Amino acid sequence: MFTDPNPYFSVPHHFTAYLSQWPNSQPLPSEMALRSMQSLGIQLLSEVKTLEANCLLQLRHLDNDAKAVVDFLKLQSRKVDLVLQHVLEKETQEGEKCIGSQFGGSGLRLFTPSALAIGTHYKITLFIHDELVAILCFGKVVATQPITAVQSQNNEHNISAESAAKPCDAQWQADVEFSQILEADVEQLVKASLNVQQKQLKLRKLSRDEHQ
């Protein structure tokens, strides 16, 4: 999918992204500057998820009697994540709204209403609702092609219409590689991509079992 020589695993999955073109004359922000650009909602969600991960990691070392406590804490943490994400999605978002079709730790694949110039950098606010992921990052367009060409390729490879579904106003598909992203956010995306893959594999297995 992406041109990085060591790309992370990526999965097909729909999500929402807001893109704002970054001036070519302006350098990409440092990690510290990127953190300062995050909205309050993204900061809160990121901090909560980090605390949850550290807490649950420590609880794994407890004996089996603590399993009920761990499950309860996971439920409570998910409630907090859902509330924070709901608040975050109500914030006014900057940039053009696009629908994504694939993501991973290296980058994204997006449907866009117009062609994005290759080599252009964008500030991206990314929401993967099912996985409770919300991040701010920067990405560079590395490939773009019209949807008609994508549909032709899908037909050649027998890709289902459902997996290739796109918004009605989208005319182009773009591949975007991350050019500035926090390491913790890469970890979030990698974990989310693995979770999505596991869910997809379970669904396929259930579908095969039902047809046997």
Rank of each mutant, 00 (worst) to 15 (best):
P23E: 10
N158L: 13
Q26F: 04
P113R: 11
D209T: 11
L62Q: 13
A115I: 06
P146F: 04
D175L: 05
F178W: 09
K79P: 02
Q153V: 01
F9Y: 14
V142C: 13
Q200A: 10
Q188N: 14
K166M: 14
F127G: 02
R35L: 05
K97W: 00
A17V: 06
D71E: 14
K123H: 09
T3C: 09
A164G: 09
A53Q: 08
D209R: 14
K140W: 00
R60F: 02
L75G: 01
K67R: 12
L19I: 07
F72P: 03
P113L: 10
K49T: 03
R204L: 15
I159R: 08
A164Y: 05
D209H: 11
A117C: 11
D65P: 01
S46F: 00
S106K: 07
N195T: 11
S160D: 12
T92R: 12
L56Y: 04
N154L: 07
F2E: 01
D81Y: 09
L189W: 07
K74I: 00
D63R: 09
Q151L: 14
Y8E: 10
A53Y: 06
Q180N: 09
V70E: 07
L88K: 07
L19V: 08
N64I: 13
D130R: 12
P146Q: 08
E96V: 10
E210C: 12
A192F: 04
N154R: 04
V150C: 03
S101M: 01
D71H: 07
C98S: 02
S163W: 02
S10K: 08
E210A: 15
I128N: 03
A117N: 13
H129K: 15
T120G: 00
L126T: 01
K67H: 07
L45K: 02
N64F: 12
S207I: 06
F9I: 04
R35M: 00
Q102G: 08
P113A: 12
A53F: 03
A117S: 15
L28P: 03
S160N: 08
H121Q: 13
H86G: 13
A66L: 03
V186A: 09
R60I: 04
A184I: 12
L84D: 02
L51S: 10
G41I: 03
V176R: 02
C55N: 06
Q171H: 12
P7D: 09
I147H: 01
L206A: 13
D4R: 11
Q188A: 13
Q173A: 05
V70H: 05
H129A: 14
H157E: 15
L88R: 07
Q145C: 05
A192P: 05
S114H: 12
S179C: 15
K205Q: 15
S39M: 05
A68M: 10
S106I: 02
S114Q: 13
L62P: 03
S30D: 05
A17N: 00
S39C: 07
L203I: 03
L40R: 11
K199L: 13
H211A: 15
V142F: 07
L28S: 10
T148W: 02
